[in-house]
Design a protein around this nucleic acid. Structure first.
Lengths: 203, 203
DNA sequence: GTCTATAGTTCGATAGAC
DNA sequence: GTCTATCGAACTATAGAC
């Protein structure tokens, strides 16, 4: 049986070569979509970066829209900023600031997110559902964490957890846009820290 | 002399008809770019909406990128949210909340802004300079107003005017994106009010 | 000023040889 | 799996008749 497992070009498991090719495509597509957006980036651009023909690319991803969704899901898995469970020992403030500083040093990650998020608001954009769900889940996650802090008396009186959750996400996204257009004029982590300092009380 | 003034098809002034045509084009382009973005919207779409051929459209605006810039500048002139001098009698809070509530009832205005702002971060986008300058001017304007409030003792101690200015703009933009994707789940004016309540002290 | 016609690209996706 | 070739469509912009 073991000698007849079919398509297994490598010892590291079935379809290992294929998986590497898909990774190369995702990396290339991430860069292209970040620089030119979904509509502005072409499959030819992605294929050139990945070192293959445009038709070979479509062998791994059946269409451009499927490629976009794969890039978005892949981004979640590497940045882990979605609904992924955080270290419970790390405070909300530390987690937010750590992620904000990390993103500053990974070129392309913020571009991809900001560009596609704006594009996704347009009619018929394949990423619209992704961002809608993402915001919904993020609001729910932050609301829960803020309610927990409220129970510990760490929330400033008068602050509504749901409003603060949506506002924190909004502030984060908006400051990223300003930072991308003028990196020297905006302090991303500083703005986030200032907001959390307003919302939270010292321990 | 008065009988030989050349291109004057109307009594209401020179080029009146031409001005109306340009207005129709701007209105159509505003709707198309808001719905599909700059790269996703075509001149044919705009021409169809404006009731003319695509080539006639290019008679009024020499290129697609020029049309985009004209739409952006026209938007400023009608919404008056740029660096336009506000009524000095109106407080910062009232002005922000009034504008936020107004925008909710003008479909297309927020779409255009959010979509193009995200797109503008991409390489070679004709609107990039516009948004860069816009953010710079907005930060300067809000910083000045917040410093004025600080002198009146209306600013919460510890709040930095420049940080708060960038944060207010960021929060506003970000909450618009969330509202466009889930209008029923986000209260734009509520989030802005909550933030200003945190930053400002009661009179 | 307005139009038809079209040049000249570029695109996403398919067909089929190897 | 990878490629060349290509289809069919869409796009911006230009040329030129009226």
């Amino acid at each position: 049986m073991s000698t007849k497992e079919g398509p297994q070009p490598s010892r590291r498991g079935p379809y290992a070569k294929s998986t590497e090719r898909r990774q190369a495509i995702l990396t290339a597509a991430h860069a292209v979509f970040a620089a030119h957006g979904y509509r502005g980036g072409s499959l030819q651009d992605v294929a050139d970066r990945a070192g293959m023909s445009q038709t070979s690319l479509l062998h791994y991803f059946p269409s451009k829209s499927e490629l976009l969704l794969a890039v978005l899901n892949w981004r979640d898995s590497i940045t882990g900023d979605g609904t992924a469970p955080r270290d419970p020992e790390e405070s909300l403030v530390d987690a937010v600031l750590r992620q904000a500083r990390f993103n500053e040093n990974v070129p392309g990650v913020l571009e991809l997110y900001t560009v596609l998020c704006g594009e996704a608001v347009t009619e018929g954009h394949p990423g619209r559902e992704y961002f809608t769900k993402r915001f919904q889940e993020l609001r729910r996650s932050y609301t829960r964490q803020l309610k927990q802090l409220a129970e510990e008396g760490r929330l400033r009186p008068g602050v509504d957890p749901e409003t603060a959750a949506a506002s924190l996400i909004a502030l984060w996204d908006g400051i990223q846009t300003q930072w991308l257009l003028a990196p020297g004029s905006v302090d991303m982590a500083g703005c986030l820290r200032a907001y959390l300092d307003l919302v939270l009380l010292p321990e």
